[in-house]
Amino acid sequence: MPNTLEGNTVVLTGTTKPTTILTKIKSLGGEAIFCPLIETKETILLDDDKQLQQARIVDWLIFTSQNGVKAFCNKMKRHHLTPSHFNGKVAAVGTKTATCLEQNGFHVSFMPTVFSADVFVKEFPAIAGDEPNCLFIKGNRAKDTLKRGLAFDVKEWTVYDTHENLSYVQSLIELVQKKAKLILIFASPSAVDVFAKYVAPTIGWDKATIAAIGHITAARLAYYGAEVTYKPKVYTMEAVIEEIQRKKEINHERS
Rank of each mutant, 00 (worst) to 15 (best):
V10D: 07
E31T: 03
F63T: 00
A239N: 02
A91W: 11
A211P: 03
N3P: 01
T209M: 10
V93M: 01
A187K: 04
A128W: 02
N8P: 03
L46R: 04
Y224M: 07
M1N: 14
L166T: 15
T82A: 08
I173G: 10
A91P: 13
N8Y: 08
I213W: 08
P189R: 15
V58D: 02
A180K: 11
K75N: 08
E156T: 11
C134E: 12
D144I: 11
K41H: 03
T113C: 00
I57N: 14
V11E: 01
G225D: 07
A117V: 00
S27Y: 08
G94F: 11
I183F: 07
P125Y: 04
L45I: 03
A91H: 11
P132S: 13
N133R: 12
S255D: 07
I210C: 04
L150G: 15
C35E: 05
C134Q: 04
A71D: 00
V90Q: 08
G29A: 15
Y223V: 09
A180S: 10
S84L: 09
F195I: 02
I137E: 14
K181N: 12
D161H: 03
I137Y: 15
E131H: 15
S116H: 05
A239I: 12
Q177T: 01
Q51E: 02
N133E: 12
F124T: 04
A226L: 07
I241D: 11
H252I: 07
T202I: 11
P189F: 11
T20L: 04
V240G: 13
L175H: 03
G68D: 01
K24C: 13
D130C: 08
Q177Y: 07
V69W: 06
K197S: 03
D118N: 14
E174M: 12
N251V: 10
Q51W: 06
V199T: 07
V234Q: 14
S65Q: 01
V119P: 10
F86H: 05
E131L: 09
L12C: 07
Y235R: 07
E243L: 10
K247S: 10
K178A: 10
G94T: 03
T229R: 00
F195Y: 13
V192L: 09
T64I: 06
I33Y: 01
L175T: 00
I203D: 12
G149P: 00
D47R: 00
A222L: 06
E174C: 05
K41F: 02
Y160V: 00
P232L: 10
D193N: 04
C73N: 01
G204L: 01
K178W: 01
T113V: 01
F152C: 02
E227S: 11
E123F: 09
I25N: 09
